[in-house]
Simulated assay, not measured.
Amino acid sequence: MTAALPKAGAVPVASMKRRRRAPGWLAVLPLLVFTALAFGLPALAMFNGAFTVKAQTTGATSYSLSNLTTSLHGAYLTALLGSVKLSAVSAAIAAVLGLSLAQAVVTSRFRALREAVLTASGVLANFGGVPLAFAFVATLGNSGVLTRHLGLAEHGWDLYSFWGLIIVYLYFLIPLMVLTITPALEGLRSHWREAARNNGATTLQYWRHVALPVLAPSLLGGLVLLFGSAFAAYATAAAMVGSSVPLVTLQIADAISGNVLVGQENVALALSLDMVLVAGLVMAMYLPLQRRSARWLA
């Protein structure tokens, strides 16, 4: 028997598939180039500077781990741990409160209320920086309106502290959690609740054994997003607390501007690299769970 020969002019299937995929790659190419220029080059510059040491006498540069070692000791380590603690606590509180608010919005029969809350959340989630700090200082500062009228200072209230900064962060973290978790709550199937009820499950048991396991990856994703937003926040903390609350973003700003020691710019890059590593570690734990959530809510 002789093998069947392709007809004249016939195009192999693999070649046709490659031709179909080629325009898709060409369409994505501008985005890849932009991403490489906007994110890749700064990342390479940060990595290079974090490992570069400049001699004070001769000005010669060399590669060393001294910048990273410095960034993990003394005041720099205290600031890094302070940022991690502040971000974790504020993200956890915002996740609980945001989930409760989002559940109330999703189950509400008033469409106008739902749209109003989601619209306000979209605005408040992007309200931060110096204007947010000024608003809280004027309201809850040492001479703030509510502080004087309610006598909060007599009860030990201090806005310029760790817990005061957490309250300020919750102002934009809770709306961000509402926007993040609302689509996941809407993805819960109504027949899941009905099946649990028919089998004698209470509302608490439904949430413990059905809803929360399904929502767990989305909740962790929201926690990651909230943690990253709080971890990278700078202007609000700088305008409010200055150096009274040790934060890594404030240490980076001081090192770049030379407020601590002259010539510490590369230490600031090492601190930035530490922040990237912390964020990467959190994302590495989140991505596998996000795939599981997408499978359940599809």
Score class of each variant (00 low, 15 high):
M177G: 03
I166G: 02
F136V: 09
L225Y: 11
A235H: 02
S243G: 10
T202Y: 06
G164T: 01
Y234H: 10
R197L: 06
G187C: 05
L159Y: 00
L165G: 10
L165P: 02
L204D: 01
T202P: 05
L226D: 05
N198G: 15
V117S: 10
Y234P: 11
Y169L: 05
R109S: 14
T203A: 12
S108Y: 12
T182M: 08
V137Y: 10
V178K: 11
L179K: 01
G222N: 11
A138C: 04
R208E: 02
F110C: 15
S161L: 02
A153I: 01
L150R: 00
Y160I: 05
W157H: 04
F134D: 04
A196E: 03
L225V: 11
G242I: 00
V214N: 11
L146T: 09
A230Q: 07
L150S: 04
L150W: 05
H209V: 00
A125L: 09
G151H: 04
V137R: 13
R197E: 09
P246Y: 04
W192S: 10
G151P: 02
G187Q: 12
H149P: 02
A196V: 00
Y160A: 06
L140V: 07
R189N: 12
V178P: 13
E154S: 11
A125C: 10
I167Q: 04
